[in-house]
Design a binder for these strands. Structure first.
Length: 494
RNA sequence: GGGCUAUUAGCUCAAUCGGUAGAGCACCGGACUCUUAAUCCGUUGGUUGAAGGUUCGAGUCCUUCAUGGCCCA
């Protein structure tokens, strides 16, 4: 490519002049935002006077050259470092010829180092009046169009480094993601939770209904799974006496890829002894509305064509009522297989005949309700069949003390009062094993050690998992999970 | 997995009925002492995603493949 060849030639010219096009000897004194903060109140005249009497402080900044506008004897540039942008100004009559030439030769995208004093332009803009200028790192490839940026999604994801340079929204999203994680840690730390880490490589997987990735440990010649959830290990820690724990980390599920699924994703799971799922609803409301306030100063956020109201309290909707309101299944027919089958047929749900009742109830619920649950909604009272780790509802033992939080038409959180009766747990696992044997490859496998742990007594506990990627999507108004992951999984390029 | 759709210069996009692939930005050269998408003048830049096919002639039509996007399951 011609442009690359030209830039390589410039790098060679630098070498010929004894300059290193990949130098690492420039000392930075300040960031762009330091300069705008320090001089926010200084007038053009003040700054000119300081320069004239030689009392103006000198600054050394470095970053990527993002724009260049040159005239006969004056030029302006824009330098971006990790804090933001600052304008550079060059005045030919006052500069060494070499410095002016170096500036003229510099390409957009080069990493440059500048020294000088602060001034204001006639338009009033703060500007570093440069007297020393070097290309520190030569950029060999041209940046995308400075106005249109990168629009091709494949390129944006595959070459995220370029996307981050030219797409401010992408930068903002990832800054926001980082803030979310920090907020979550502070939120739980304040409540005396302990952050823990549990294995991602496991001889036995569990804690969710999903297909795992498998791998192999050579030394032990043993099959290992990538975890699909940290749940069982976190509950082992509760048994061990760590009564408030949370883990923020990656989970892996060997499933399809879509705008809301990536094979690896980040989950927050937290467990609190002596709490119930109802306590967690209040905690979740506080967490999410607090997060919105913290990030945006409001709990009303745009989401596609909608506006989300994330202020507490959130709506509560039992699965039973949801089926009645959205799927035309009267509350008294909640357990009526025929009525549910009619609804399933209407909603074109495949393989409904072979589903156990709880699965059928949830399949109909998800198909009929999910997309309409835009405003935050706690869906409660799940069927026992689909909840092998949840505590039975005392008033209605075919249901469990569980909720899922839906926002923006997608599941954000899943929580329940934990099942801590080891015998009931064994029965649930056995039912899951049976389901697996009859073809459900997402059924939960038996975990003898987990039952043994429960036999030592796990205090009454409530636990919750929150999908961090989806949460960030909501908080940044991104409708694709790929926009909140630095490097989403894609097919190989060639 | 199925349907629809897209892929053209480094980037953003044009190209009428199938008839010589073009513009803006970037780049290169020139003018210019306050710009901020600077402006003006002049150049350069193409295996039209890949492979086949139809045709005198294919960016355009057909087939297959690759990679995205949207919708459905």
């Amino acid at each position: 490519m011609k442009v690359i060849a030209e830039r390589r030639a410039k790098a060679e010219e630098m070498k010929a002049r004894g300059e290193n096009p990949f130098a690492n000897d420039f000392k930075v004194s300040h960031l762009a935002e330091d300069l705008s903060a320090l001089f926010a109140e200084h007038s053009l005249e003040d700054l000119e006077a300081a320069i004239a009497e030689g009392s103006a402080p000198r600054f050394a900044i470095a970053g990527r050259l993002m724009a260049k506008r040159s005239f006969g004897k004056v030029a302006f540039g824009s330098l971006r470092d990790r804090s933001g942008d600052v304008q550079l100004s060059f005045f030919r009559p006052e500069l060494d010829t070499d410095i002016w030439t170096a500036m003229k030769k510099a390409d957009l995208g080069d990493i440059v180092g500048c020294e000088g004093v602060m001034m204001r332009t006639k338009a009033g803009e703060l500007s570093l009046k440069v007297d020393l200028f070097r290309v520190l790192t030569k950029s060999l490839r041209p940046l995308p169009d400075k106005w249109h940026g990168l629009t091709d999604t494949a390129t944006r994801y595959r070459q995220r480094y370029v996307d981050l340079i030219v797409t401010p929204e992408a930068r903002d999203t990832f800054k926001m993601r980082s803030k979310v994680l920090r907020y979550l840690r502070q939120f739980f730390d304040k409540r005396d939770y302990m952050e823990v880490e549990t294995p991602m490589l496991q001889p036995q997987y569990g804690g969710a209904a999903a297909k795992p990735f498998e791998t192999h440990h050579n030394a032990l010649d043993m099959k290992l799974f990538m975890r699909i959830a940290p749940e069982l290990n976190l509950k082992r820690l509760v048994v061990g006496g760590f009564h408030r724990v949370y883990e923020i980390n990656r989970c892996f599920r060997n499933e399809g890829i879509s705008t809301r699924h990536n094979p690896e994703f980040t989950s927050l799971e937290f467990y609190e002894a002596f709490a119930t799922y109802e306590d967690l609803m209040r905690l979740t409301e506080e967490l999410i509305s607090g997060l919105a306030e913290h990030l945006h100063g409001t709990s009303t956020l745009p989401w596609g064509d909608h506006e989300l109201n994330l202020s507490a309290p959130f709506r509560r909707l039992s699965v039973r009522d949801g089926l009645a309101q959205y799927a035309g299944v009267p509350t008294e027919s909640f357990y009526d297989r025929e009525v549910l089958m009619e609804a399933a047929k209407r909603l074109k749900i495949g393989k409904a005949e072979s589903m156990p009742l709880g699965y059928l109830q949830m399949a109909v619920f998800e198909e009929a309700c999910e997309a309409d649950l835009i405003q935050p909604t706690f869906v409660t009272d799940f069927p026992l069949d689909v909840s092998p780790l949840s505590r039975r509802k005392e008033s209605e033992p075919t249901l469990v003390d569980r909720f899922e939080l839906y926002v923006g038409g997608q599941e954000i959180a899943n929580a329940f009062s934990e099942l801590n009766d080891p015998d009931d747990q064994r029965g649930r696992f056995e039912a899951q094993v049976e389901a697996r044997d009859s073809g459900d490859d997402e059924a939960h496998p038996m975990d003898e050690d987990f039952i043994r742990a429960l036999e030592y007594a796990m205090p009454p506990t409530a636990g919750e998992g929150i999908g961090i990627d989806r949460l960030v999507m909501l908080l940044t108004n991104n409708t694709s999970i790929r926009d909140v992951l630095f490097f989403p999984l894609l097919r190989p390029e060639h």
